[in-house]
Amino acid sequence: MLETRNLDKSFGAVHVTRNVSLKLERGERRVILGPNGAGKTTLFNQLVGELTPDSGSVHLAGEDVTALPVAKRARRGLSRSYQKNTLFDGLTVEENLGLAAAVHTGNATQLWSDSLAKPEVREIVDEVAEQVNLMPYIHAKVSEISYGVRRQLEVGVALATRPLVLLMDEPTSGVGPEMSKGFHDLLNNLPRDLTMLIIEHDMGLAFDVADTITVLNYGEVVFDGLPEAARGSKLLKDIYLGSWEDA
């Protein structure tokens, strides 16, 4: 469903992505691990088109999308959430989800009709709000909801484009342990045919959600395999200084 071939990116003398090749099958849930500065978010930015790789290619559902801009990749089914919330602060939860759903359904540029009143938009908004547990806050403004609920909305907005592949950059970043557990359930309850690539530091969530795990270090893939194999890998323990043994 999503494939990168020898993706390479440098910023001056700093080599941030080194020949990264990944292949995600339809419905696969892969977690990317790696210490800070390993190049995880830079890899995401290249996948969605916010950064152009120096060499290599990105393929979505068999199509080479390397030359496509961000919006066109998104319309082909590549959606992402961000490590820092990028929500529409003055708007309600419903309106946030509605903006994304309107783009997906082709109502975002309609004149003389309210996109949020369209049945196809409403259907997506209601469905996603249920999926990410946002129904109790549906009419609240972003500024009125807690940080944890905003993280749910961050994922919800990405989901409302009905993507083929969902990229999530540290979805539990900054949330407490209880909320983090809620996120495990939330991600596990998403449709099984949705392909997910998740950057995560929370080892509990990583091992709970992942079908496969990729570990990046200094921009290079140093491990690619099943969670069970990752748990026993000495190389990974060295990279993380054994920090997940408690997970």
């Binding site: 916010e50 961000v70 319309r75 992402r80 990028t86 994304a100 783009v103 484009t161």
Partner: peptide, 9 residues
Amino acid sequence: QRMRALGLT
């Protein structure tokens, strides 16, 4: 940036 990432031209 987010609107672009959602697929809007």
